[in-house]
Amino acid sequence: MAGNMNITLKVWRQKNAHTKGKLVSYDAKDVSPDMSFLEMIDEVNEVLIKKGDEPIAFDHDCREGICGMCSMVIDGRPHGPKEGITTCQLHMRSFKDGDTITIEPWRAKGFPVVKDLVVDRSAFDRIIQAGGYISVNTGVTIDANAIAISKQDSDKAFDAATCIGCGACVAACKNASAMLFLSAKVSQLSLLPQGHPERMSRVENMLQQMEDEGFGNCSNTGACSVECPKEIGQEHIARLNREFIAAKASSENV
C-alpha cells in the first residue's frame, strides 16, 4: 500500500541464557504506519516461521500498555522513542521509510536474558515478596469507609501504584538500579494509613532484596522517570529515601 515502509531491523538474538548472543539484521517489508511495533515484529516472525527459522522471541501480552510484559530497548531507549507509553503502544508511524532500528533486551544483571529479547524479571516478584504488601488475611471486616484518607494522599498513592512492573526504569538507568520500581511500592504503601504498621521493616527488607538481586545504586539521573511508561516521578524515590532514613534511625531492628 502507498505510505507503507521498508525498515531494517537489527535484533538481539540469543538462543538461551547460556549462549552468547549477537545482533542479526532482518528486513521488515511493506510496513503499514498503522501497525503497532509488535505487530511489525509479528509479521517478521510469520516470514521466519514459514522459512523454518526460529521467530524472534519477545515478551508481550495485553498489547494495551497495562500488563507490563513487553520489554524492548529500541534504538537505545526502553519502550522506544516516545514517552509515557509501552512498546506495545508504539506505532510504526513514529518511524520513517528506510530507517534502521536496533532492538535489544533489557540489560541488567538482575534481568538475565532468557532468549532473544525475553528477560527474567522474577527479581521484581522477589522484591515484592520481601515486603511489598500489607499483611492482612482474607476476611477483613473493617468497613472500607472506616478510615478516611485524604484525597491528596490517596491520589499520590495512586500515582505510585500505577507502576506496571515492566522494568523500563532498570533498563534506562545507567546503573541498572531498580529504585523507581522499589520506590513506587514503598511510596504507595507509606502514603496510606493501612501501610503504616509495617512501613519500617518494609523499606529495609525491600531495599536489601533489591541489592541482593544485583541491581545497581541510584544516582538520581532521573532517566527512569523519563522512560517510565506510567511517568512515575522522582519524588517517590525521595520518599523512599526518607522512609529509609526514618526506618534506620528509629526501627528496632538492631
Binding site: V140, A144, K151, Q188, Q194, G195
Partner: peptide
C-alpha cells in the same frame, strides 16, 4: 473492605 485493607488506592472524595 478486603481490598481497601490491602492498600488498593480506590478513588476518594475530598472528605476522604
Amino acid at each position: 473492605d478486603q481490598c481497601v485493607a490491602q492498600g488498593v488506592p480506590f478513588a476518594r472524595e475530598y472528605g476522604g
